[in-house]
């Protein structure tokens, strides 16, 4: 049977993990190589993320994303091959690269781009 100390340590670790998860905002998820790593393919406006030469996907900004509501973006992030079978974008939702709540934060980030 686990000792009270071990249980306390596990609870603390879970709380820390949850707090960390909440602190990972859309920009983190967009740029982190172990998460979305969207920045590897898409440039964003200066000040919104690291400056890269990435051009596998289109540059993302407010003009490009005009008309992309949450539902449409959620669908693309979940599985882009449904809309375009040749897409090389990873199926973030379908392959569990991002959790549903993380996808929502990425959408927040995209909608906030200038």
């Amino acid at each position: 049977m686990p000792s009270p100390v071990r249980l306390l340590a596990a609870a603390a670790a879970m709380a820390a993990a949850a707090a960390w998860g909440q602190s990972a905002d859309g920009r983190d998820l967009f740029t982190r190589p172990d998460k979305g790593n969207c920045i590897a393919c898409h440039q964003v406006p200066e000040g919104s993320g690291p400056a890269v030469r990435a051009d596998v996907g289109p540059r993302l900004d407010a003009a490009r994303l005009k008309g992309w509501d949450r539902k449409r973006l959620r669908g693309i992030l979940d599985d882009p091959t449904l809309a375009n079978p040749d897409s090389v974008m990873p199926p973030y939702g379908r392959h569990h690269l991002l959790e549903a709540r993380e996808i929502e934060r990425v959408i927040d980030f995209l909608h906030a781009l200038p």
Binding site: V52, R53, P90
Partner: peptide, 24 residues
Amino acid sequence: GQQNYACASCHVHHAGKYFGDTAI
């Protein structure tokens, strides 16, 4: 794989494009 890439996704269909800061 989890990213759902084929080798050709990058090296054939996007050769010469930049992935991050690296030309494919």
